[in-house]
Amino acid sequence: MTALTACSPGSPAPSPTAAGLPTAAGSLTPSSTATPSPSTLSAAATPSGVLTTEHAPAAETSTAPGPDASSPAPAPTAATPKFSLTDPTSPWVVVNKRRPLNPTTFAPADLVQPRVRLAISGEASMVNSTTAAAAEKMFAAAAADGVIMTLASGYRSYSTQVTTYNGYVNTDGRAAADTVSARPGYSEHQTGWAMDIGDGGGVCSFLPCFADQPAAVWAKANAYKFGFIVRYPAGMQAVTGYVHEAWHLRYVGTDVATAMATRGIATLEQYFGLPAAPGYL
């Protein structure tokens, strides 16, 4: 069975115009429009999504499965969002195969390189400023526990995703490309809120066996304390559209991350009561 994966750093790199993209991909030119800092987001300032001034976690009676469930259970009672679920500058934005970024060419205005051990350079070594600050604390805590973690891939621009996706289309066709690479405008990496981690030993990077490496084991147990979740947990591909990616961490803030960890809620889709996204419409 072909593995579905949202992160594909080792893809071919043909010209972005070499193959046609889905209509939803939009322009190849990243937006230069400045966006507000995530730290300033509020119910009054966020232009879209369902908003309230207080966050109400999912119901205690939730029957949501844990990260290793073999099939998705009914979604728990939806949490009431404090931030937008559609604005890409929001820490709670939900991006999947049914929820593209708006605009699809979004580019964060506050990209920085976190002061952590890097296994990559260029744009991929950056995340937005909020994610960077949380990552620095998380990497330091892991090191204090004797676990060396690296930043293997962070931000990925729209134009980079165009090149990555088109490379797979040119080589294998669109249907196969959709199983291994997110379409441009549909990748969490483009938001600045996501990053892929590596292990200090450099073993099993972007491979299923990474789940057994010290960095992945530590992150699964502790990342929530710093506001991160493992975005694509095991057994949840029918909900997220991707098989397990132990390396792909997503910043959502400590409120959501802790609530999900405490109640065993596996995915953002289930936490917010959103439809599953196993494939593109």
Rank of each mutant, 00 (worst) to 15 (best):
P114K: 11
R115M: 02
R115Q: 13
R117G: 00
R117C: 01
L118V: 08
L118G: 07
A119T: 08
I120D: 00
E123L: 15
E123D: 15
E123M: 11
S125D: 05
S125K: 14
M126E: 04
N128C: 10
T130A: 12
T130S: 13
A133G: 04
A134Q: 12
A135D: 03
E136P: 10
E136C: 13
F139H: 08
A140P: 06
A142G: 06
A142T: 06
A142Q: 04
A142S: 10
A143W: 08
D145Q: 14
D145R: 13
G146C: 10
G146Y: 04
V147N: 08
I148S: 15
T150C: 03
L151M: 15
G154Y: 02
Y155H: 08
Y155Q: 01
R156S: 04
R156C: 02
S157H: 02
Y158Q: 09
Y158E: 01
S159E: 06
T160S: 12
Q161G: 01
T163G: 01
N166A: 13
Y168A: 12
T171M: 07
T171I: 00
T171Y: 02
T171E: 11
R174D: 06
R174C: 00
D178Y: 05
T179Y: 00
V180F: 00
S181L: 01
R183L: 01
G185S: 06
Y186A: 02
S187P: 03
S187Y: 04
H189M: 10
H189S: 07
Q190N: 12
Q190M: 07
Q190T: 13
Q190A: 07
T191L: 07
D196I: 13
G200P: 12
G200H: 09
G201W: 03
G201L: 14
G201M: 11
G202W: 10
V203I: 15
V203T: 15
